[in-house]
């Protein structure tokens, strides 16, 4: 940021100064707002939601979770992802050097802006990533509107 001297009457232009301040504020806000919202919910598992024209995709990293230990339910506009990450069976008589991987139960509700058809929701689990596919209803898909010439 440039440092402008205030005192000199020849350089002090209040309106310009205000304008500069406004730009500076805009820049600050843009920085805060456009920051990617890492870990907003603080509920396990962290999720990424993406969309294309046909569906919403909710992804979560669940390494080491067995597909049969994941439960997904859908109710109107809310998807609930729950399950348990169980400890690996390591047998008895082992000594740990490091233990960074955590185990436990989880449950998280995700609300989407549109109603979903529970029958059409699909879930895949591949390489430790859960993907829940929520097809968009016909009504919520973007439509191309033709402009007619009269």
């Amino acid at each position: 940021m440039a440092i402008t001297r205030w005192s000199s009457p020849s350089t002090f232009k209040p309106l310009e100064e205000l304008e500069r301040l406004r730009r500076e504020m805009d820049r600050l806000f843009d920085n805060v707002m456009s920051r990617r919202s890492w870990l907003t919910a603080k509920v396990y598992p962290p999720i990424n939601i993406t969309e294309d024209k046909d569906a919403y995709y909710i992804r979560a990293e669940l390494p080491g979770v067995k597909p049969e230990d994941i439960e997904i339910s859908v109710e109107a506009d809310t998807v609930i992802i729950g399950g348990e990450r169980k400890a690996e069976d390591v047998g008895t008589n082992v000594t740990y050097h490091r233990k960074e991987r955590e185990t436990g139960k989880f449950k998280r509700a995700v609300r989407l802006p549109t109603q979903m058809d529970p029958d059409k929701v699909e879930a895949k689990f591949k390489n430790g990533i859960l993907t829940v596919i929520l097809p968009k209803s016909e009504g919520s898909k973007p439509r191309q509107i033709q402009v007619k010439a009269e």
């Binding site: 990617r36 919202s37 890492w38 870990l39 907003t40 919910a41 962290p46 999720i47 990424n48 939601i49 993406t50 969309e51 294309d52 919403y56 995709y57 992804r59 990293e61 591949k126 390489n127 990533i129």
Partner: peptide, 15 residues
Amino acid sequence: DYGLGETPVLMEYGV
């Protein structure tokens, strides 16, 4: 295979 080509809506973890 992490959803390239889709539009991000909410990103809580980095890929």
